[in-house]
Structures are given as C-alpha cells and as structure tokens.
Design a protein around this nucleic acid. Structure first.
Lengths: 117, 117
DNA sequence: AATAATAGTATGATTTTAAAGACTAGATCA
DNA sequence: TGATCTAGTCTTTAAAATCATACTATTATT
C-alpha cells in the first residue's frame, strides 16, 4: 500500500491538542486540580486504579506542555502542589465543549446553552 | 495508598467523549471522511504509517460509537464507503474548539472568531 | 530507636498495543 | 490460465505501556 501524507499528525492542530489532553488520566487530573485537589497524594487517592508512576508521568507531561505548574515547598515531609497555568486555564472552552457533547450524546443530559449547565 | 473514587471515568462526560474521539487515528480519519475520502483503500493511502488492521479497528470503533456509518455496495471487487452520521456531524463544534486551541497555543496561529478561520 | 509522613524513583515482570506479512472471495482483464 | 482488484482477517512477532513492589531522603513524633 503506497502511502501519501496529506492529513498527518504533525500539521493537524486537533491531533496536536489531543496529544496534550488525551492522556489516559489527564482530563481527570485537570478536573481534580480545577477543584483544588492539587497534591500528589490526594490525587492518587481520588483516582482509583492509577499507579504512582502513572500519576507522576501524566503530571510531568502536563507540566512539560505548560498546562500545569509544579510548586515545591521546602518542607519535611515534602510538599508539592500543582496549579493550572494560564495556558491550562485556556483549555476551559475546549473541555466545556467536550463535556457538553458527552452529556448530550453519551449520557443524554441536555445542556442549557444560556448557563452552560 | 487507599483509593476513593470521586472523579472517575464512568461518570466524567469529558473522559467519555475522549474515549470516542481520542483514538490514535480517529481525528484524522474523521477529517478524511469530512473531505469525502471515504473508502478504506484511499484512507490507508492518505494516512502515512497506519496499518490495515489499525485502520479497520479505528473505523469499527467509530462505527460502534455511532459516529460513522459503513455502507457496503454489492460489487466485485468490493466497495465500502464510510459516512458521518448525525451524531458524527454533531462533533463539529468540539473539534473546532480543539482546532482553534491547537492553532493558538501549539502552532501560534490566531483564529478569527468571526469567521472561525 | 523505631515509625510515620510525602513525593516520588528504580527495577523487573506483565499486559497491551500494534506491525508485518500471508491469506481470502469472486468477478474481470490480459 | 493466471493476474488484478478491494476490503478486509489471521497469525505470529516485536515494541511500548503499565503494574507491583521495594526503596530513598529528612524531620518530627512516640
């Protein structure tokens, strides 16, 4: 099968966005941070079935992509907190659209366009 | 580490949406179908580095999720074409948001809100 | 002196994903 | 007669993702 690139990963902005937020746990992690659950241990407790190293790697990727910020406090035992960056907060309309579509087409919950709920 | 479910995959509409469009090639496949490239062979040629069985599995998942429709023509050699369903077309605003965010934050291309370009 | 606390890392094993290549049907073309 | 076409499937095989478990540092507490 001869291959010809036309729509490919490198020049598709949607696919590029997917790479940033599409990780197995990233949406849920962003949800937790959005709800002020921003410590490693707490996140691990909230996310059923995630392993420490998986949590670490997802957090690192979000950090490397500039979506979240990692703040280390010089304390013992160590304290680290994660926060959304401006870029991370800019994902809000993207995630809202996905939420609305999911509610409407997967959970059959209609959203009120006026309120966004 | 004790686990407590709070935000989990089953009740998160965003994660649910991700499961539908988040497959490795799904966005690109939808893009092709949107651009009237709707035969298996053509898609395979356009998507560099995709294998036949990967293409098949992605198409099957999209079909099972009601996003695309598979139409078989009783011809020899066989002809099969894929089309977006109404549900598939309803993804348009979701994908547009992702495209805009990607262009703005990953490719540094500003989008004109008025025209959507 | 041992234990607990946090936010991880290191190691090795296992599971999952994905690829390559061979194979199929049935009509048509050379 | 044998090759060609399409849209796949099937069977290995290799690679990537993920897990469980043990381990680290340093201070405070018991």
């Amino acid at each position: 099968m001869d291959k010809v690139a036309l729509g490919n990963v490198q020049n598709c902005p949607v696919t590029a966005t997917m790479q940033v937020i599409g990780g197995k746990w990233k949406i849920l992690i962003l949800y937790l941070i959005f709800n002020d659950i921003n410590r490693f241990g707490k996140m691990g407790m909230m996310l059923k079935d995630i392993s420490k190293q998986m949590l670490t790697s997802q957090l690192r990727e979000l950090e490397n992509d500039g979506i979240i910020e990692r703040r280390i406090y010089p304390e013992i035992p160590p304290r680290v907190e994660y926060f959304l960056t401006a870029k991370g907060r800019s994902l809000e309309p993207v995630i809202s659209q996905m939420r609305d579509w999911g509610n409407e087409h997967l959970f059959n919950i209609q959203s009120d366009v006026a309120t966004g709920r």
